[in-house]
Design a protein around this nucleic acid. Structure first.
Length: 205
DNA sequence: CCCTGATTCGC
DNA sequence: GCGAATCAGG
């Protein structure tokens, strides 16, 4: 695959939206996240595009010894910050000693863009209304005690996506335990999600 | 371990 | 220019 105009454009767009390199790579197809990152850098997209503060930190630039106590601003050549065009109400980052991770955009890009929302798989009926094998149910109850209680944004392809609680309230989270191979849920929840289609219904034969 | 982006360097 | 390998962090 080569970097056609369209692909580059999509790359720019997604990167600008704060999508991760791997997501972009996956979307584009035929490239790895390394390729995406490499391209991003070559395009000069890695830092703020706005043209402000061209503090070019040349890779070959010698590490200046911190010997300027007077007005030593902050010899932090590590280019960081997201090129988020949208106005950011967030407090300006004064110091970056212990800032929050940049993986979570202040402005959620989940609005119009289908994201990591679980789909395709059958959504689980809440156990409350259903009759499920007592064993599985007991298992689930047990599991829910030690569930990781992750949020929507924390879901990955490897976290159990079984919703627990009421989505309309704050009493809502996702199981978050490790998924069973391939399945969208952990072992316990797979147990209740994929019923063998015979609990006691057609038991005769 | 999973993930993230950053950099290097042979091609 | 490209991207795998590697590095550095969370």
């Amino acid at each position: 695959m080569s970097w056609t105009d369209e692909r580059v454009e999509l790359l720019k767009k997604m990167w600008g939206e704060g999508q991760s390199a791997s997501q972009i790579a996956k979307e584009l197809g035929g490239v790895t996240r390394n390729a995406v990152i490499g391209k991003v850098h070559r395009l000069g997209l890695s830092n703020r595009a706005g043209g402000a503060a061209p503090a070019a930190a040349a890779p070959a630039a010698p590490k200046a010894a911190p010997a300027a106590p007077a007005a030593a601003p902050k010899p932090k050549p590590k280019a960081e910050a997201k090129p988020r065009p949208a106005p950011e109400p967030e407090t300006a980052k004064a110091e970056d000693d212990d800032n929050t991770p940049r993986t979570m955009p202040a402005v959620p890009a989940v609005s119009t863009r289908r994201q990591i929302i679980p789909a395709g798989q059958p959504l689980p009926p809440q156990p409350s209304a259903n009759e499920i094998s007592p064993e599985a149910l007991a298992k689930v109850n047990e599991v829910e005690k030690k569930a990781k209680r992750i949020s929507l944004m924390e879901l990955t392809e490897k976290t159990c996506k079984w919703p627990i609680g009421d989505p309309a309230t704050e009493d809502f989270w996702f199981c978050g335990l490790g998924t069973q191979t391939g399945k969208p849920y952990c072992e316990a929840h797979v147990g209740v999600a994929f019923q063998p289609m015979s609990s006691r219904r057609d038991r005769r034969r």
